[in-house]
Simulated assay, not measured.
Amino acid sequence: MINSSIKRILKNILAKWPSFMMYLGSISFLGLLCFLYNIDFMLIADLIRFTFIPFVLLLFYRVYHEDKLLKKLKKAYLQGQLLSAVPHSLTERTFIEYFNRAQQQRSQYEKKIQEKFKQHRDYLVMWSHEIKTPLIALSLLAENKNEVASVDVQGQVALAYHQLDLILTYERLADFNHDLNFKWSSVDNIVETIIKKYAVFFIRKNITPRVKVSTVKILTDPKWLSFILEQLLMNALKYSKKNTLIEIEWRDNTIKIIDSGAGIDASDLPRVFEPGFTGNNGRSHDSATGMGLYLAQQISKIIGLKLTIKSKTRKGTSAILSISEDKIEK
């Protein structure tokens, strides 16, 4: 520790060579003037005798001050604190101001990272519990019945897959642009595939899908358009009553998913795209995570679509996905 301090001080002293050179240069210049104008060189000797010791003392004080400043700087940096030091020059004052500003920005950034990490951890914990729900349901079915209906098994497995898909999508959202593949895709084929995928949920609640989608093609990423529509359709299925209809239609350059379910409270509607927000409806459904619409909206923005939600309490909800005209095949 002592050796390192001595080495640091010696380096600081050696770093002052420009000051030594300036001092020697000044003496040499005065010596030249004495030579040219026949001035007694004792003047130079007196100048050195009266200025050398103060010059060295001043130099050592500067080294001591800078060494002390560096120690404070290192401590403040490691502890994430502001630097509290008396500046001895305009340069030091400017440096301290910029350092403290950088420390404040660093502190704010670290807080954001910590909040994001906590939020990320909370979501993963929440999803882990949501994935347990269909597994527990299957376990209870198996305990209470010798034979479990195929539709019940398929429903719980599909629900588990849906939650797992949400987790994986949330994980890759930060680096999403590397997983995009735009091409001309048929809307009716995408919708038909999704309905088949979630057929078990339609069957369990005896809900009829009414599809009014033409053979229009749009320029998009079919994988992520499917993901968005799956989230919207899953919400419609979740909050729809038994023996009702869910309409899926193409109209005016939009894909609409319309249900006649519980609807969304007017006070909750502005917040439906916030991560983790479930609202009054979500609190009445144990399987609500509040992440489906958030992910759907985030991905919509990335692939150039606009997602809006219109709803009235007890009258149903309309999820509207708008496609710009330049992405629709003429």
Rank of each mutant, 00 (worst) to 15 (best):
G31L: 09
A236N: 06
R8A: 15
L36P: 05
Y109F: 15
F55C: 04
D40E: 11
K196H: 13
V216I: 14
F202E: 01
E110W: 14
S214H: 09
S26E: 03
T289E: 00
G80Q: 05
M22I: 09
K197C: 04
V153E: 02
L33D: 05
R210H: 10
D179W: 10
D179S: 15
P222H: 05
L245H: 12
D152A: 12
A262H: 10
E115D: 14
M22F: 13
I299P: 02
E230N: 01
I257G: 01
A266I: 10
E97I: 14
L159D: 06
V213Q: 10
V153P: 02
R283N: 15
I195K: 01
A45E: 06
L69W: 08
T193V: 06
E92F: 03
F95S: 02
K217S: 13
I228M: 05
I194E: 04
K312M: 14
G155I: 01
V86A: 12
N281R: 05
L232H: 04
E274G: 00
I2S: 06
H65Y: 12
I207R: 00
Y98Q: 13
I228K: 04
D46K: 10
R172C: 07
L32N: 12
D179L: 12
L124I: 15
V216G: 02
K217F: 06
K7I: 12
